[in-house]
């Protein structure tokens, strides 16, 4: 099998496991909803917050949920020492990383159809077809940006005690550019892009994604060495 085929194989395996344990996967989405409710009551129960605040809540809900999703993706690997088993097979570590990262990416993307409409409802955002297309693209970029470093860090922290503390501690400061770019872009999409800044923010997000998908893929195999 080529590395590419192996990557798809690992991604398929992870998504299949996610499907089998769909109540757990759904729980992550439910958690995202709960955070949105918390935010709305923390600021204003009548939904009277600005567009950028709503966008911020949405991205923060994604970030918080991603921690659970990422930990879940490595829970099985470490519980049954399955990662070590996978390493004994003639599977390229690069394929393991990209496979798992793709699976995590897909799971994070799937939070979009849950969180996005809820944010629009809770905070009275006006959405139309053109808006939605732009937001979907941004959602993909944001999810990709979290998935790559998230997969790398989760693979490490899943093998130490105290993982619950370390993963967000490492991932949240790192993904701050995603939060900033995400909030600004959503704001620009919804309120109009008078100074054509949207392209710049999208490029910044894309650059973040590119840097970390390459860098984390290159470094992942080193973290497996024992």
């Amino acid at each position: 099998m080529s590395t590419f085929q192996q990557t798809l194989f690992v991604a398929r395996k992870d998504l299949l496991l996610g499907w089998r344990a769909r109540t757990r996967t759904l729980a992550v989405a439910l958690f995202g909803m709960v955070t949105l409710v918390l935010f709305s009551f923390a600021v204003a129960a009548d939904g009277e917050v600005g567009v950028s605040a709503a966008a911020g809540f949405l991205i923060v809900a994604l970030l918080l949920s991603s921690i659970l999703s990422l930990e879940e993706s490595f829970r099985l690997e470490t519980e049954d020492r399955a990662l070590e088993g996978l390493l004994l097979l003639p599977v390229d570590p690069v394929a393991i990383f990209y496979g798992k990262a793709i699976a995590n990416f897909v799971l994070l993307v799937l939070l979009g159809p849950v969180l996005l409409p809820l944010t629009a409802i809770f905070f009275s955002l006006e959405l139309d077809g053109a808006n939605l297309l732009g937001m979907a693209l941004l959602w993909l970029l944001a999810a990709a940006g979290i998935a790559a470093p998230g997969t790398l860090y989760a693979s490490m922290t899943s093998r130490v005690t105290g993982r619950d503390v370390v993963l967000p501690l490492l991932l949240f400061p790192l993904t701050l550019p995603i939060l900033m770019a995400g909030v600004r872009s959503f704001d620009l999409i919804l309120r109009g892009d008078a100074m054509s800044q949207l392209k710049g923010w999208t490029l910044l997000l894309a650059a973040f994604d590119l840097v970390y998908w390459v860098l984390c893929g290159a470094l992942f195999s080193r973290t497996l060495e024992e």
């Binding site: 470093p149 790398l152 490492l170 790192l174 550019p177 900033m180 860098l215 470094l219 080193r222």
Partner: peptide, 16 residues
């Protein structure tokens, strides 16, 4: 590994 990942983030954060 974590140091490299963190260091690369600094210019990204700055420009952002």
């Amino acid at each position: 590994v974590a140091t490299i990942i963190a260091y690369v983030d600094v210019p990204l954060v700055y420009f952002c």
